[in-house]
Simulated scan of single mutants.
Amino acid sequence: MTAANQRRRSPSIRDVAREAGVSRQTVSRVINNHPSLRPETRDRVLQVIEQMRYRPNAVARALGRNSSHVIGVLALQRTQYGPIAAIQAIEEAAVAYGFVSFTVPLTDTSSDMIREGLEFLVSQQVAGIVVIAPQRPVLKEVTQLELDIPYVLLHSRVDDETDLEIFADQRHGARLAVAHLADQGHRRIAHLAGPADWMEAEARLHGYRDELTARGLDPLPVVHGDWSSASGAARADPIVASGATAVFCSNDQMALGLIHAVRLRNLSVPEDVSVVGFDDIPEAAYFAPPLTTVRQDFASMGRRCVARLITPPPGAPMAATRLDITPASTVALVVRESVHNITSR
């Protein structure tokens, strides 16, 4: 039997709570010897724990007992603009509350790496965790740990845990990009997508297809990059060969590489090929031509993450306590000069 199979068959805190007829919080209080429990409730839960041979996760227990002023951040990448901007926003929001943040980078998505990252955060006695790793293996491991402290998932969608999410509406942002290209007369619109195992890339791909379908346009074969400018340049051949007059790129770095490669093929941007990116990195306004792109409000998402994790102290800035920002309001189309109107062709 593999370790994964053993983990799936092991009873969880949910199983214990259901069998004992109590909440998960009550089971957690029993495990951590909380004094405010009735003896009969404690005994019943302990009996079920013994019968089911439930073994509480050591990481979850340690996290559940902390009371520090440190926000832990578990992040998959610190080389791309999105994660960097999100981490910076969380750091600034934490300071506004009188907290500090501590980031643990993940070099891969293995179970051991994820658990090691959480164990290190435990050693720092964090008060809560923000997960910036929008890949399904990471989210699966985090949810299986059943943490007993506050945690939120940034940039991710988990269907059965929507109360733990803070996210920009990637799908809506992609539709804004494709709608702008279609409004400028483009009918053959290609998509340079991000890595297939990234949930953000998946959402943007769905948005691309949704908008084309809504307008009665056919999608072109999708090409995947790895978020880097080099991968954008390397994917130029199939995009040009498709006869696309416009390309929606899943991030600005890949758009930069694509623009460079298109020019090497004696084509012009935007006259021959229009390009729209995603993220609005600081350099996007200085591309040649300046890049039309989709902006994400990382500052608001950072504030929401920290506010979701902690109770604001008296006198905290009001801007840092707002939780009423809807997903769609965190993305916006920024129109510059990389899209050509071809309605007169």
Score class of each variant (00 low, 15 high):
V131L: 08
I87M: 08
S123Q: 13
T109D: 15
V104F: 07
E119Q: 15
F99W: 11
G98P: 05
F120G: 00
V104M: 11
E92M: 06
G117D: 04
I87E: 04
Y97S: 10
A89Y: 00
I90A: 04
I132Y: 05
Q124C: 12
L106K: 02
F120I: 11
E92Q: 13
D112M: 11
A89W: 01
S111C: 02
V95L: 12
V131Q: 05
I114R: 06
V95T: 12
A85E: 02
P105H: 07
E116L: 10
V131I: 15
D112R: 15
A127C: 10
A89P: 03
I129M: 09
A86E: 07
R115V: 14
A85K: 04
I132G: 04
G98H: 09
A85Y: 01
V100Y: 08
G128Y: 03
V131S: 06
F102W: 10
S110W: 08
T107P: 00
D112A: 15
A127D: 09
V131N: 05
L106S: 05
Q125L: 12
T107D: 14
Q88R: 14
R115P: 02
G128W: 02
S111V: 15
S101H: 08
S101P: 04
E116H: 12
V122I: 10
T103G: 03
V100W: 01
S101M: 08
T103R: 03
V130E: 05
E119N: 14
T103W: 00
S101Y: 03
I114L: 11
V95M: 09
S123E: 14
S111M: 05
E119L: 13
E119P: 00
V122A: 06
I114C: 07
V131W: 01
L118N: 01
S111K: 11
E91D: 15
S101G: 09
A86R: 02
E119F: 07
Q125P: 06
E119S: 15
S111L: 12
I87H: 00
A96W: 03
I114Y: 06
M113Q: 15
A93S: 13
P105I: 07
L118K: 04
I87N: 00
L121E: 07
V104I: 13
I87R: 01
G128T: 10
V130R: 05
D112W: 02
I129D: 02
F120L: 14
E119K: 12
V104C: 10
L106R: 02
L118C: 13
V122L: 06
G98M: 10
F102S: 14
T109P: 00
I132E: 06
S123Y: 00
E116D: 14
G98E: 09
T109F: 06
A94E: 04
D112C: 02
Q124S: 12
G128R: 07
E91F: 00
I87A: 02
A127G: 12
A94P: 01
R115G: 08
T107M: 11
L121K: 06
S111G: 06
F102N: 12
Q125T: 13
A93E: 04
V130N: 06
Q88P: 00
E92R: 12
A85M: 05
E91H: 09
G117Q: 03
L121T: 08
M113R: 15
T103H: 01
R115C: 09
V122P: 01
A85F: 01
V131D: 04
E91Q: 11
I114F: 07
V131A: 08
S111D: 13
D108M: 08
E119G: 14
T107N: 13
F99Q: 09
S123D: 13
F99A: 09
A127I: 05
D112I: 12
L121Q: 07
V95R: 14
